[in-house]
């Protein structure tokens, strides 16, 4: 520890030419923009030691040396409570304030001053807290991930869609409905086999299935209002309705129509 200190201090002196305000008992953290992780941890340690020394009243010596400006309590607070996330945040704030010369190295920009809070800052604070405590609420929309379809070739003329049931379950849709859609879109015939796999007549690549499933999800799964896939498809007097579980909105969806299917293959003499 003792041998680490001078090293860091040197760096700071080079990097930091901002005038120090001794009235505020703050030390500045060294600019971490160029430092790596190891440096960071080292920095933490030095902060700890220095905070100790500050509390012992060696402040003046530090001030003469243009030392770190930092609140004495800050490092402990940082280390015990929030760790890296706030560390990063701090760095960012510090970099923003670098231009001003006097830098208040604090957790929030208003700390140490008696100005009013700005809306943006408060908003940022709320989101930081939210992100620390329960990250899933922080509004980062998670993408719905579906596994890619696994497709096998059965003979030369049939294609087997292996994880058809899994995908139906992840979408919360009836396999019959999905199957109808797939078959209508591909213009072929097919059925479920004994292991609940979908056997389709014709040769199809996994990419083809993926494209069609994507269209299915867009049309029959995703809620138009909030884009969440948490929806229920129900049939009310011959019409299909989609109701969203997240936002409660509903919409009607088009029934699946097979459309025109041309006769391929050989025809019988009679017809």
């Amino acid at each position: 520890m003792a041998e680490d200190n001078p090293n860091v201090d040197l760096k700071e002196e080079v990097a930091e030419l901002a005038p120090f305000d001794p009235s505020k008992k703050k030390k500045k953290k060294k600019p971490v923009a160029s430092s790596d992780l190891a440096d960071d941890s080292l920095d933490k340690l030095t902060e700890k030691t220095e905070s100790l020394s500050v509390s012992e009243g060696v402040e003046n010596a530090f001030a003469g040396l243009k030392k770190k400006k930092k609140k004495p309590v800050e490092p402990d607070f940082l280390n015990e409570e929030t760790g890296d996330a706030v560390e990063d945040l701090d760095d960012q704030i510090k970099e923003d304030e670098e231009g001003e010369g006097i830098v208040l190295q604090t957790r929030y920009p208003w700390e140490g001053t008696d100005r009013d809070y700005e809306y943006e800052e408060l908003l940022g604070r709320v989101f930081n807290i939210l992100r620390e405590n329960n990250p899933e609420l922080a509004g980062d929309r998670r993408r719905t991930v579906m596994r890619p379809p696994q497709v096998l070739r059965e003979g030369t003329k049939k294609t087997v869609f292996v994880n058809f049931m899994d995908l139906c379950k992840t979408m919360h849709r009836q396999p019959e409905h999905v199957m109808n859609f797939l078959l209508a879109e591909m213009g072929t015939s097919g059925s479920l086999d004994g292991q609940q796999r979908l056997v389709v007549k014709g040769r199809f690549a996994p990419k083809n299935f993926e494209g069609i499933l994507r269209r299915y999800v867009n049309e029959y799964v995703i809620c138009n209002g909030c884009k969440s896939p948490d929806t229920i498809l129900s049939k009310e007097n011959r019409l299909f309705f989609l109701r969203c579980e997240q936002c409660g909105s509903g919409r009607s969806v088009a029934p699946i129509k097979a459309g025109f299917v041309a006769r391929v293959g050989r025809r019988k003499a009679g017809t």
């Binding site: 213009g187 072929t188 014709g202 040769r203 459309g259 041309a262 391929v264």
Partner: peptide, 18 residues
């Protein structure tokens, strides 16, 4: 206007416009 494709034997196909 529905434009569909239908597979035939081999790598042949049909396009229908309805």
């Amino acid at each position: 206007v529905h434009i569909r494709i239908q597979q035939r034997n081999g790598r042949k196909s049909l396009t229908t416009v309805q």
